[in-house]
Structure formats: C-alpha cells, structure tokens
Design a protein around this nucleic acid. Structure first.
Length: 717
DNA sequence: ACCTGAAATATTTTT
DNA sequence: TATTTCAGGT
C-alpha cells in the first residue's frame, strides 16, 4: 500500500481533505459526494502515511450500521484487522469510557445500561411512588423533559426556574436521577452526559485522552446535540484536531436535540479550521439533482451549496397521482415488477415513507405478488416483549437487585403473585431503601405475607437462585437457552399458538443465536462477566447486525432511516400535506424546513430512477380523508417532472394540475394585532419578517406560547 | 388472578 | 384502524 493508492480515484477536494495535516477541518459534503469515502481514506491516511497508531484515532458516528461500515471499509483498505479501534456511535464510545473509568465517573463498576422503554417504565414507577397523578403529569412527557435537559448538559439541580410546570418536572428529574445513581442505572442520554462530566471534572483523564487521540473524526456532524459537541470540544479544543463531515441540508434530527448551529459554532470555536466543500455528486443523474437542488433552495437557513454531476441527464423524475393509497401501493409494486423483468434486482428498489405505519400497505401488496421485501426499523428486535422478558430473567441472574427486571417477570409467566403481594413488597422496599428482591427475602423470613402468596413467591426466588447456579458453568448461549426452558417462558409461548405469537419462539431462538455470535472484547480488563457485557451491549444495539442480509429483496424504510444509503430506483410515497410534511410541522417554519430536508434526503438516495407519488384520498384514523398533494411538489419546477400513470387508469385527471402553490395572503398584518389560528387559538402578533412567500410572523398564543409561523400557510383570521 | 369487552388513545422520526 | 388501558364480572 502506498500513498498514491489512498489518493487515486479521488477528486481534488476529496484529496485535499484526505491528505490534510492533522488540524481542524470541516468537510461540508452534499449527498452522494463521497463523504464516507473521504472519512475512510482520511483515517487510513493517518495510519499509513502519518504513522498514527490505530488506537490514537477516534471516529464517531450516529448509527451502529455506519460505524460497522466504516470499520469494514478501513479494514479492507488497509488489509488489517482493527479490532479495538475507537470507532463507534457516540453512545457506545461513551459507554466504553464509562466502563473503563467507572469509579472516576462515580458509577458502580457493574452499572447497567437501560433503553428508552425501560426508562419510561422506571419513570412511571417513580411517579406512582411519589403519588403523582399520571393524567396531569404523563410519564412520557417527564421522560422527554429529562432527556432534553440531559442533552443540554443540565443536571436536575442546575435548572433554575420559578415556573410551576418546570419546577415539578425538575422534582421528578431529581428523583429519577437519585434513583438511577442509587441503583447504578444509566440511560442513553446519561451515557453522554456522564462521560462529558467525566472528562470535564477529571483533568488527568482529559489530558490522557486529549494526547491519545491525534485526530477526532465525526460523521454526520449536523446531527450532534449540545452535549455531544461539548464532549468533542473537551477532547479537542485548543488542539485544533477536530475533523468533521456533515451536511446542513441533511439535518433531520432536530426533534431529538440535534443542533445544526453546531456547524456554525465549530467555525467560531476552531478559528484555524480548514473548510472544504464537496459538491461533486457521484450518485444521481442530472434530472434527479435538478429536482433536489430546486427543492432545497426553498430553505432559508443554509450554508449554501449546489450539487453537480457529470452523469447524464437520465430519465425524468416521475410523479404518480393515485386515487387512493391502495392504488399507490399497486403502482409502486407494478413498477418494481417491470424493473425486475428488465433484469434489475429487487434490492435495487427502495420504498421510502414518512411514518412506519405506511409500510403495511406496501407489505400487503408485495406479499400478494410474492415479492420478497425487508422492512427496516419499526419494531426493533431487542424491544420485543418476549426478548425483553428473557433479558429480564438474565438480568436478575446477573444482578438480583435489578428492580425493573424483578417487576417485569416476578409474575410472568403468571405464578400467582398478585398486585396485592407486589404492593406489599414495593412498600417494604421503599421504606427500608432496599431492592425488591431483598424486600421479598425479608418479608418471607419475617413471615409477613399471606400464606396464599408466600409459596409462589418463594418458588420464584428459588427459581432465580437455581438458574444462576446452574447457569454459571455454561457458555452464554446455553445460559439463555436454560433460562428460556426453565423459566416457563417456553411453555408459555408454546401454549399461545395464534398467528401473532407464532414468531415468538423463533425470536427467542434468534436471541440464542445472537448470543452465540457475541464476542467479548479482550482489550478491556473487565471485571464484568460475559453475560453482563452482553446485556449492556444489546441495550445499545438494534439487533440489526444479526439479520441475514443475503436475500435479494425490496427495501422498505422511513425517510429517516434511509439517510446514508443509496438505491438504483427510489419511490418516495405519500407526498401529501399533513402526512409529508407532517401535520405537526406545517405551521412552524423551522420544522417545515426540516421536513423539506427530509424530502431532500429522500430524493438524493436515488441513483437512476426516482418516483414520487401521492394519493388523493387516504384512510387515516380509521377514516377516509381527501388529501392534498404535498406543498413540496409545488416547489419543484413542473418541467423537471413527468406525470406517469398505469394503463388501467386512463380516466384519471392530470396530476400536475392539482399541484398549486398555496395562495398568497393579501391581508396585511400589523404588530400587536389580535389573530385567530385554527390550531393554536387566539394570539397576538409580536414580529413580522421576510417578504412574499417567505414572510414569517411571530405570534404569542395564549395556550401554546410564542411561535414563528409561515404567513402564507398560517390560515390566520 | 384472569378474562372480557368497552373506552380511550395514538401516529413522526431513534441511540 | 389498531392497539392499549381500564372497569367489572367470574
């Protein structure tokens, strides 16, 4: 391997980025411009040419998939195995840091990672213990609040507020925080916050890692949130060695706390950075890029860049107006069949939709035609109830004082331990500040339980004890097998043999399979058992990696999960107002821009052929609704799209004529004027900005507070 | 403890 | 519409 090999087949801009000296660098890379390629070659360059040790390179991504791909590509480029490379998601890197420095992070060495589902359950539990009315203070709102605060770097006691709502939320946050600390539980946002604090408060450690990492790389930087950026800054500030790749036009996670503004902050915080734009697109035809460029130019907040391609014009972008959602699915599947007959593979096709619920129609249609397909996202493997139940048993084996798991399976499968008994155990545990397990043990020995419930409870405790004893000598996969067989789960799922539960045993078998594939990293001098490591790792994984990827099948996914992927032929479906853009984003300019970026992401996934479709009516909430074509369609020049139909529906009215830009509002508004909004109610105008279609208006609503609205869409009276 | 049916509730997007 | 939660009966 020589230097030239790493630089050949790169364009000038890419080459500049790859061969730059170690310094702060921003690569603003449009869709399909070889972003990952640059990152991969850059890392290889540092190892090969600059002589960096693989351990001295940190690369962070947002998904496990991206991390795995990057690792694989570097490995095949360098032809060496880089097992303990610092490549991973923010969460998994944070986990690794905390694992190594648990004590310094003020965590018990056997701390447990919980997923958002577990987090919600825990919050519910805490709220009931506090005797809080869950109608007034819904657990998911509390969860959202806590995570949001953590992602902004705020601990409960750091929040300064006099607001009643916030005060209450703060109290719940504090309770939750204390509970987690007591029981060594770490949720997703805690991983980030805790590892930030670890580096912030620990000069020695911080310096160690600052010296270790010669360069820190971040993929999809536009998706970083406040705490992630703060963490990166701790590692790189004043060293000027942060290498970031991102695209502000593909920022689609602001609802999850991502701050596009971090791109701007980076430019301020690293004044010596180099700035490279990648605008040469290698993925899509001219026709597709024209549509993409036009669409995204409607966004106001952009750093600005335009994609170019040397590829041919290609087929026009197609638009199909379906008369209902079934017709839409029929159309898409027909097109896929046609392409297959012309020699294309099923896996060259992707159907992209706004919400997961839309997948069903396409699945039905594909199934009917006997076409293999794969749905990404949606129900995640490790979130299925049967998996979670098994995991709960495993967790109890690893740690009997895991209350969440205790609650989950103490009476599942049912063994005669009712709510009453459980209530007594909870109360006892709360009073004596001990775990539910300990409470159960104590209550039995003090014989403070009714004779009816004492036997099953004893049996349960005995079951867990026996399980952990006999599991001790077994390998991981066999441990899990033993649990499934002995706990009664297997019998339970065997008895439940309706169509829906049929897969459950298969899923359990898959869990055993996943365990047998699980590899413990040798590197970390861990005190944890293999089981504990496995349990933590599945909290951080979606289970995607254990799936079979060999089969040739049509790809179905949300627009969000399509980011980073590419397909020969792409269908973006359901392009209707209220669905895409979603009804919750229609009236707020920032959210509308994000929806537009989401559409932009969808369009730029296509290499050769792009089909857009909408339906004139759609079943929603069990009702048939007339739908309007998405306003985004009116932002694409008409001559760059071709209207298509199937031969069977020649009577259809032309689709393009239905697409009209929203009528501009003639009424003039003044500051301080009272207005009425269909969704938000009454309010007062605070500010008006912008001209024409881009005119924005700031209103204080009595109910919902201050909001920016797009005047041309706001339907004010 | 568990079953049943009615009523409420939910639909972004994910580590 | 589909799923989940809740109340009331056994």
């Amino acid at each position: 391997m020589n230097v030239n090999m790493l630089l050949e087949n790169l364009n000038e801009q890419q080459r500049l980025a790859v061969s730059a000296p170690a310094q702060a660098l921003l690569v603003l890379a449009g869709a399909g411009t070889g972003k990952t390629r640059v990152l991969v070659h850059r890392i290889a360059w540092q190892i090969q040419v600059l002589g960096c040790s693989p351990y001295s390179i940190l690369a962070v991504t947002f998904t496990n998939k991206a991390a795995m791909e990057m690792r694989g590509r570097i490995e095949s480029l360098l032809k060496m195995s880089l097992n303990h490379f610092w490549i991973g998601t923010f969460h998994s890197i944070a986990y690794r840091l905390l694992r190594r420095h648990a004590e310094a992070a003020k965590l018990p060495s056997n701390f447990q990672v919980i997923d958002s589902d577990d987090q919600l359950r825990l919050i519910k539990r805490i709220l009931t213990d506090l005797k809080i009315d869950d109608k007034k203070w819904p657990a998911n709102k509390v969860q959202y609040f806590i995570n949001q605060e953590k992602e902004n770097g705020q601990r409960a006691l750091m929040i300064e507020t006099t607001d009643f709502y916030q005060k209450n939320m703060q109290r719940f946050y504090l309770e939750y925080q204390q509970y987690c600390q007591r029981s060594g539980i770490v949720d997703f946002s805690e991983l980030l916050l805790r590892s930030y604090e670890l580096l912030r408060d620990n000069l020695e450690l911080r310096n160690h890692y600052r010296q270790l990492f010669r360069q820190v790389h971040v993929d999809e930087f536009q998706d970083t949130n406040t705490i992630q950026y703060a963490w990166l800054k701790l590692l790189t500030e004043n060293q000027n060695n942060l290498f970031i790749v991102g695209d502000d036009d593909q920022s689609i996670y602001s609802w999850r706390g991502a701050k596009v503004a971090n791109l701007t902050y980076f430019q301020q915080d690293y004044p010596l950075h180099q700035f490279i734009k990648l605008e040469q697109n290698y993925r899509s035809t001219q026709a597709i890029l024209t549509v993409a460029n036009h669409l995204i130019s409607h966004n106001q907040q952009r750093l600005g860049k335009t994609l170019r391609t040397d590829l041919m014009q290609g087929d026009q972008v197609n638009l199909y107006a379906a008369f209902n959602e079934q017709d839409e699915a029929y159309f898409v599947v027909e097109k896929i069949k046609q392409a297959k007959n012309e020699g294309k593979a099923f896996s060259d096709h992707a159907i992209l939709y706004r919400v997961n619920a839309q997948s069903r129609l396409f699945e039905e249609r594909l199934m009917l035609e006997g076409i293999p397909y794969r749905v990404y996202g949606g129900f995640r493997f490790f979130e299925r109830a049967e998996i979670k139940n098994t995991v709960a048993y495993l967790r109890l084996i690893a740690n009997r004082h895991d209350d969440a798991s205790f609650e989950r399976v103490v009476n599942f499968p049912t063994r005669g331990i009712g709510l009453k008994t459980l209530e007594i155990i909870r109360k006892y545990a709360l009073n004596s500040q001990c775990s539910l397990w300990q409470a159960a043990v104590d209550l039995i020995s003090h014989s403070q339980l009714s004779s009816r419930s004492i036997t099953p409870l004893k049996q349960f405790l005995q079951l867990i004890k026996t399980l952990s004893d006999s599991a001790e000598a077994l390998i991981l996969a066999d441990k899990i097998k033993l649990v499934i067989e002995t706990s009664g789960l297997q019998t339970y799922y065997q008895q439940q043999s309706d169509a829906k539960t049929e897969n459950r045993l298969e899923n359990l078998a898959e869990l055993i399979n996943a365990a047998s594939l699980f590899k413990v990293s040798i590197n970390d001098q861990d005190i944890l058992t293999e089981l504990e490591l496995f349990l933590n790792s599945i909290a951080l994984e979606t289970g995607e990696r254990y799936r079979d990827q060999e089969i040739d099948c049509v790809q179905l996914m949300t627009l969000h999960s399509a980011k980073g992927l590419e397909f020969e032929q792409v269908f973006v479906v359901g392009l209707e107002d209220n669905l895409f853009p979603s009804s919750q984003s229609l009236y707020e300019p920032n959210r509308l821009e994000e929806e537009r970026r989401l559409f932009y992401v969808g369009i730029t996934r296509a290499m050769r052929h792009l089909y857009l479709s909408y339906s004139e009516s759609r079943w929603w909430y069990g009702q048939e609704n007339n739908s309007k074509p998405s306003r985004f369609l009116s932002e694409i020049p008409l001559d760059s799209i071709k209207e298509v139909r199937l031969r069977s529906h020649t009577h259809q009215k032309p689709a393009l004529s239905a697409i009209k830009p929203p009528s501009s509002i003639e009424t003039d508004y003044k500051v301080n004027q009272k207005v009425q909004h269909p969704k938000f109610g009454e309010g007062i105008i605070l500010k008006i900005e912008g001209e024409g279609m881009q005119r924005k208006i700031q209103i204080r609503f009595e109910e919902t507070g201050i909001k920016w609205l797009m005047l041309s869409y706001a339907k004010l009276t």
